[in-house]
């Protein structure tokens, strides 16, 4: 890298106080008080030193450190709520700081070298962009996974009766998870009944109904019975309009009704006590 950029740029960078000072000034203007000048100076001072080392000595370890430092800055800026362009622009500001120095001296050769230097800074700026999107993608992937786990709990309602409160849209992947979790829990707890509550499912179409039917059939094959509850008026209308047949599967309007049905079917009798 050092050979391509040329000695004149390195010489300009030697004047650390002036170039770094101008760079910090430009960046501080851009961030408009969201981080203090002192913080900017510490961050950029570190970067500046590393850029200098890489350009002047062709130092391999400095190149690695520089990229790590940039990634760190990009990540912390992302957390502070800066947009990726703002982070990248603060790196690009170094070009302007150097360019102004060349303009002051008015040298022809330095301009040629400045083109190469500009390419080098662009590369660094783009790297902050990449780090930013990689960080965001990681966050999204984590959230998707958490959502899948959160959204499919299987709870015990009574001895031998499980409840599955479904919330959110049902797609094939989720149904698969629900089906597997539910069936495994039925085996583990030796439960005879499962109540699938779809109060939180925003819409039921033929696909969702198909998924529900499959789950119920699989549970039935294992010798257990499923009751579907939480069918709201609009959903009941949609189901009839679409001509979906739930066959002989028991459906109830509310979770309470379904629980009462399951209790009665498993031979539990509820008696009102004195406190009621």
């Amino acid at each position: 890298m050092s050979g391509a950029v040329g000695t004149r740029i390195s010489e300009i960078l030697e004047d650390r106080e002036a170039v770094l000072g101008r760079w910090v000034e430009l960046v501080t203007e851009g961030v408009r008080g969201r981080i203090t000048e002192r913080e900017v100076r510490t961050e950029l001072g570190e970067l500046y030193g590393l850029v200098q080392r890489e350009l002047a000595d062709g130092d391999e370890s400095a190149a690695g450190e520089l990229r790590a430092a940039l990634q760190e800055i990009s990540r912390s800026r992302a957390r502070q709520g800066f947009s990726p362009s703002e982070t990248a622009v603060s790196v690009f500001a170094l070009k302007q700081a150097v360019h102004e120095r060349i303009g002051a001296a008015g040298e022809e050769t330095a301009y040629a070298q400045f083109i190469a230097f500009s390419g080098y800074v662009d590369e660094l700026g783009l790297m902050t962009f990449e780090t930013y999107s990689a960080t965001r993608e990681q966050v999204i992937a984590d959230q998707a996974e958490q959502l899948l786990e959160l959204a499919t709990p299987v709870v015990k309602l009574w001895d031998g009766i499980l409840g599955v409160p479904l919330v959110g849209t049902l797609d094939s992947a989720r149904t698969q998870v629900v089906m597997e979790t539910l069936l495994q829990m039925l085996v583990d707890t030796g439960s005879q009944f499962a109540v699938i509550d779809i109060t939180g499912v925003p819409a039921v179409d033929t696909e969702v109904a198909q998924h529900l039917l499959k789950t119920v059939m699989a549970a039935r094959l294992m010798g257990t019975e499923c009751v579907i509850s939480g069918i709201r008026p609009q959903i009941a209308q949609t189901i009839v309009t679409l001509g979906i047949e739930f066959g002989d599967i028991v459906t109830k309007a509310s979770l309470a009704d379904a629980l009462a049905y399951a209790l009665a079917a498993s031979g539990v009798r509820l008696v009102e006590g004195a406190g009621a």
Binding site: M179, E180, L186, K214, M217, A218, A219, L221, M222, G223
Partner: peptide
Amino acid sequence: VVVGMRPAVAITLV
């Protein structure tokens, strides 16, 4: 009566 069907088997059959 068929007893002790595993979840994976039930899913496969469905």
